[in-house]
């Protein structure tokens, strides 16, 4: 065999991929041709170096969950049937109503670039979702890893609003450390892929009313009333441009829906237009509904 024919087979010779007699011929050639032998050594060095330096590239964090095909199941709740898509990282998407699996899968495809697969929801997860709707517990994981970080922060803040209470978009903006991004908070809520379980319905405009809802304002009103929010009281206060209620006994002020605020005796009640109004009269923000938000 001539050197040229040997050279282009050296790489396969190296890994023993050639036919037995070819392996043998080349082995013999190498014994008598030092420059072909050196070429083999060079190929070995190069391949070893390439393997060693390139194999340590690891996939970026979260790639696995972005490639995961999430499962979807329909469950019955107090609010009727809902579709839940879940993966190893938690709940990824929720849809209300009696749409078909295909419609739900298509909306996931459109949003995240891949479809869903039918699968039975684990009993514990089904129960947590059910309880989050009936009792407001947050005993489940949500996977928002594919959303922009701002949206993730907003949705995390929403999970801190208790059932039966509402906050303003402005409060959420303060809560995520971007007090001027009130509109952006509204948009992030509108994009919430996990409505109901991540309660974007508990955010209302400071100016009164329940505001917009991706699934329709009527449903937002229904859910809030179902959760025990007194919407007529909120509307009434908004009309009078009053945002907070305080207790003359404790000198604390709260959002009107705060559990603490609802126990204030009528004779101790006092209403405020805004934080300055309350603080100016010597009232402290309530520790539980945190009118000033944590980051303020």
């Amino acid at each position: 065999m001539r050197c040229n024919s040997v050279l282009i087979r050296l790489d396969e010779f190296r890994t023993g991929e050639l036919e037995v007699d070819e392996q043998k011929t080349i082995k013999e050639h190498l014994g008598s041709c030092s420059s072909c032998d050196e070429s083999l050594e060079e190929i070995e060095t190069l391949s070893e170096a390439t393997r060693q330096y390139c194999q340590d590239t690891s996939a970026p964090l979260g790639l696995a969950s972005r490639c995961e095909i999430a499962k979807a199941d329909r469950i019955e709740t107090e609010l009727g049937p809902i579709w839940v898509a879940f993966g190893s990282g938690g709940i990824r998407m929720v849809a209300v109503g009696s749409r078909s699996f295909e419609t739900f899968s298509d909306s996931h495809l459109e949003r995240f670039g891949r479809p869903l697969e039918r699968g039975a929801i684990p009993e514990s997860l089904r129960q947590s979702v059910d309880e989050s709707i009936s009792r407001g517990t947050v005993d489940f994981a949500v996977d928002h890893s594919e959303l922009p970080s701002f949206d993730q922060a907003v949705l995390q803040a929403l999970l801190r609003i208790p059932r039966g209470e509402v906050r303003s978009y402005a409060w959420v903006a303060k809560e995520v450390g971007k007090p001027r991004a009130v509109r952006a908070v509204g948009n992030a809520c509108a994009r919430n892929p996990t409505p109901i379980v991540v309660p974007c319905h508990r955010v209302v405009p400071s100016s009164g009313g329940v505001g917009n809802y991706a699934l329709g304002s009527e449903l937002k009103r229904t859910i809030l009333e179902h959760e025990g929010v007194d919407l007529s009281e909120l509307d009434d206060l908004a009309r009078r441009r009053l945002r907070y209620v305080g207790s003359k006994r404790d000198l604390e002020y709260c959002f009107p829906t705060c559990a603490g605020a609802r126990t204030i005796e009528p004779q101790d009640r006092i209403y405020f237009r805004d934080d300055e109004d309350a603080l100016g009269r010597g009232f402290r923000p309530c520790n539980s509904c945190t009118p000033l938000a944590y980051t303020a």
Binding site: C3, N4, L7, I8, S35, C36, E38, S39, E42, L46
Partner: peptide
Amino acid sequence: VKGVSHAV
């Protein structure tokens, strides 16, 4: 790499 200037 200082290769062997051998063939090809």
